Computed example of a mutant assay.
Amino acid sequence: MKKVLLLLANGFEAVEASVFTDVIGWNKSDGDGTTELITAGIRENLKCTFNFTVIPEMKISEINIHEFDALAIPGGFEEAGFYEDAYSEDFLNIIREFDRAGKIIASICVGALPIGKSGVLVGRNATTYNFGIRQKQLSEFGVNVLGTEPIVIDNNIITSYNPSTAFDVAFKLLEMLTSKVNCQNVKRLMGFYQDISL
């Protein structure tokens, strides 16, 4: 079983988290059955950007990265407190450990910023939210920002430039964990292809 750790910061954007839970969940139930997702956070209760509460399955202190194959990080809003958790040393250390082990790290939108702050993207290619100051902030962490690319993959790290890329990032993660054929089948089952006979 391939296990994905969905690392949630307070103030995360719900839609960006839900694509990971749904794509990995659809694969578990209707795809090749080889994936599972576990949620974790610093707090016992996390409030998402637009005000509903989530109870993560694990506290960040309980994470053993050797039990996981990939890390997924949704973005969030500064006004909702996202960076308080996402820039904490406990959060950044999980990112560093996954990268040191060569495991996949997939992020959406400003989920790339804690990856940049952790130091693992120095001299590497990435992107983040493509409006306002966020790409400049990512470059200040020593990252080569490819600002016009919707999704950037540099070895084991996937970054993207806004919420519109969310499903594409989740499907790329599934493809990297399983196979292209399996990923296409899950996309078909979820209705992403018009021709359902594919």
Rank of each mutant, 00 (worst) to 15 (best):
L121Y: 01
A40C: 12
N144W: 01
C183V: 01
V15M: 15
A101S: 13
K187A: 13
A170N: 01
L121G: 03
S18P: 05
I94R: 06
T39Q: 11
R96L: 10
A126P: 00
G147I: 12
A112M: 06
A80L: 08
I105M: 04
G11K: 04
I95M: 05
I55H: 14
Q194G: 13
V120R: 02
I73V: 14
V54P: 04
M176E: 08
L173G: 01
A72G: 08
P150Q: 09
E97Q: 14
G132M: 07
E97T: 06
V15W: 13
F68P: 02
M176T: 07
R134M: 14
N64H: 14
D168E: 13
G132I: 10
L121M: 09
S160V: 09
V152A: 08
G147D: 10
Q194V: 12
D85T: 05
E149S: 13
L6W: 00
E36R: 08
D195P: 03
E79R: 08
V15D: 14
I115V: 13
T128G: 04
M58L: 15
F192P: 02
G142W: 03
E140A: 12
G81H: 06
A166P: 00
N27A: 10
I42Q: 07
F50P: 00
V152I: 12
S18T: 13
G142S: 03
I151S: 10
F82E: 09
A166S: 15
K180Y: 05
T178N: 06
N162P: 02
G119M: 02
E13D: 15
